[in-house]
Design a protein around this nucleic acid. Structure first.
Length: 285
DNA sequence: TCCCAGGACTACT
DNA sequence: AGTAGTCCTGGG
């Protein structure tokens, strides 16, 4: 799929397997919101209004020098048609893919993803969005687009200024101390998320679990949504419900569900998880 | 007013 | 190895 320039930004001509609603509502990101005919949001300090019209996806506000950024962010070089073909051999996935046929897994920034998913623990999506937004307003950089204010998610350097109290005031609750400790441990122990990204899925998960406030589910989300570990299988309540309903007994532990998912879907476990999550959530399974 | 949703921690076994 | 109780916040 090719990205080209037009007068208001960038567009993807004949975008296949790409539905903004599926992409932005499948639980992987917190900074995109419904706007007019699509979604408006910010990724890595770049604001855009993304919508689909006919077969084209428009990235209004996208700059010519960011063509490669958006190509990578939206994972445009991957053939989701082929992935869906393979997953549809599974009866449940066949149904789930019908619902979320336009899902793509975004390539988000590891630091933002780590902090955002620490906030996601025992929390609901609107609350998570609010907290991430407050942190960005307080510690990120302001960007004006369409006469509206947007704020980039703060860098490690920007967030090191945050006290536990300030983080709490952003609406993070008991997770404030986890965020504070994560930021300061990364700085003090000179931890490189990019280096963790080079490890295999199990080794990288182990490293992420060393952060307080990061359990198996949060670690798997970071691995899948920012480190291209597509064999990760994050198990949240929705995935738990749908797995227990269609594949396993109702009392199977989260750990076993994770093991089952990874074994059954292999290198496509992460994609399967996204289709299942979206299906379960949309249908209130 | 209470109850519920939503993962990880701690302190146990 | 697995599990009960607790953490915070907004909405019904």
């Amino acid at each position: 799929m090719d990205i080209r320039k037009y007068d208001k930004g960038l567009f993807i001509e004949n975008a296949v397997d790409f539905e903004p609603e599926h992409i932005f509502e499948c639980g992987q990101c917190f900074r995109w919101n419904r706007f007019e005919n699509g979604y408006i949001g910010i990724a890595a300090g770049r604001v855009a209004y993304v919508y689909k019209k006919d077969d084209n996806v428009y990235i209004e506000g996208g700059k010519e020098e960011d063509i490669e950024f958006w190509r990578k962010y939206f994972d445009l070089d991957r053939d989701y048609g082929k992935i869906k073909e393979r997953l549809k051999e599974d009866e449940v996935l066949n149904e789930a893919v019908e619902h979320g046929y336009g899902i793509r897994i975004l390539k988000q920034e590891p630091f933002e993803t780590l902090i955002s998913f620490i906030i996601s623990a025992n929390n609901r999506i609107p609350m998570i969005k609010k907290a991430v937004d407050n942190i960005s307003k307080r510690f990120g950089k302001k960007i004006i687009f369409k006469d509206m204010e947007f704020y980039s998610f703060p860098s490690l350097e920007e967030l090191k200024e945050a006290s536990v109290d300030e983080l709490e005031k952003c609406g993070t609750g008991f997770r404030a101390v986890y965020i504070y400790e994560a930021v300061n441990r990364i700085l003090k122990e000179n931890i490189s998320l990019d280096e963790i990204m080079t490890l295999d899925t199990d080794a990288a998960q182990e490293r992420l679990l060393e952060f307080k406030g990061v359990g198996p589910k949060v670690a798997d989300c970071v691995l899948l949504f920012s480190m291209q570990k597509y064999d990760a299988f994050p198990v949240d309540v929705w995935v738990k419900r749908i797995m227990q309903k269609f594949y396993l007994a109702p009392d199977v532990s989260l750990k076993r569900i994770r093991e089952f998912g990874r074994q059954r879907f292999g290198d496509l476990a992460g994609f399967a998880q996204q289709y299942l999550f979206y299906y379960a959530r949309e249908n209130r399974v």
